[in-house]
Deep mutational scan, measured.
Amino acid sequence: KFNKELSVAGREIVTLPNLNDPQKKAFIFSLWDDPSQSANLLAEAKKLNDAQAPK
């Protein structure tokens, strides 16, 4: 279960257009550290992506 959630969340995070590479890497490392938090980490990444969207 975690492997699928981890890969789905990881793929989504790397495609978020408004995150820079260090931010993406930080989220990916957090996913590896605790795969059970993949849904929460993906939600946080999406929030940050939205907040950094060009206005």
Results as ranks from 00 to 15, higher is better:
K1V: 12
F2Y: 11
F2W: 15
N3Y: 13
K4E: 13
K4I: 13
K4N: 09
E5Y: 13
E5N: 10
E5G: 08
E5H: 11
L6F: 07
L6H: 05
L6A: 13
L6Q: 06
V8P: 12
V8W: 14
A9I: 15
A9E: 09
A9M: 09
G10L: 15
G10C: 13
G10I: 15
R11M: 12
E12Y: 14
E12L: 10
I13R: 00
I13T: 01
V14S: 11
T15G: 14
T15L: 14
T15C: 14
L16M: 11
L16F: 05
N18F: 15
N18Y: 15
L19D: 01
N20G: 05
D21L: 12
D21R: 09
D21I: 10
D21F: 11
P22A: 15
P22M: 15
P22E: 15
P22T: 15
Q23L: 03
Q23P: 01
Q23R: 01
Q23W: 02
Q23A: 02
K24L: 04
K25C: 14
K25W: 15
A26C: 10
A26G: 08
A26I: 06
F27M: 04
F27K: 00
F27Y: 08
F27H: 01
F27S: 00
I28Y: 02
I28T: 02
I28P: 01
I28G: 01
I28V: 05
S30F: 09
L31V: 04
L31A: 01
W32G: 03
W32F: 11
D33H: 13
D33S: 13
D34K: 07
S36V: 04
S36R: 07
S36H: 06
Q37I: 06
Q37E: 10
S38K: 08
S38G: 09
S38M: 14
S38P: 01
A39D: 10
A39G: 08
N40G: 07
A43S: 07
E44W: 09
E44Y: 10
E44D: 06
A45D: 03
A45C: 03
K46H: 08
K46Q: 10
K47R: 11
L48S: 02
L48K: 04
N49Y: 00
N49T: 02
D50Q: 10
D50T: 07
A51I: 12
A51L: 12
A51D: 07
Q52A: 05
Q52L: 07
A53D: 10
A53N: 07
A53I: 06
A53M: 06
P54W: 05
P54K: 09
P54A: 08
K55S: 14
K55R: 07
